[in-house]
């Protein structure tokens, strides 16, 4: 990450390169649930450690699963 540039610096931990352990697909409910809090909120990048690309995939997958009532919107 660009640590020199104050405007775009990510606070918290240093950039990590965590890759998803499973497919970020709306049908993969057990894995998506592991990336959500018990109240079904999506964990932030700081917590998942995903790249921006993977985090967006996660967001999309979870929102699709919510639409199909596979995961609740709230607890």
């Amino acid at each position: 990450m660009a640590y020199g540039n104050k405007k775009f610096r990510r606070f918290g931990s240093e950039a990590s390169n965590v890759k998803p352990d499973g497919e970020l697909d709306y049908k993969n409910i057990p894995y998506l649930s592991s990336l959500m809090s018990p109240q079904f909120r999506i964990y932030p990048r700081k917590r998942t450690g995903f790249s921006g690309k993977d985090q967006r995939k996660l967001k999309r997958a979870i929102k699709r699963a919510r639409f199909l009532a596979l995961i609740p919107y709230t607890s």
Binding site: K27, R66, L68, A69, L70, I71, P72, Y73
Partner: peptide, 20 residues
């Protein structure tokens, strides 16, 4: 694909069959 309980009611239904 599955027959499962819905996370929330859709059209008053609590369960549904998923067809993929």
């Amino acid at each position: 694909w599955d027959e499962r309980k819905l996370a929330y009611e859709i059209k008053k239904q609590r369960r549904a069959t998923y067809y993929l």
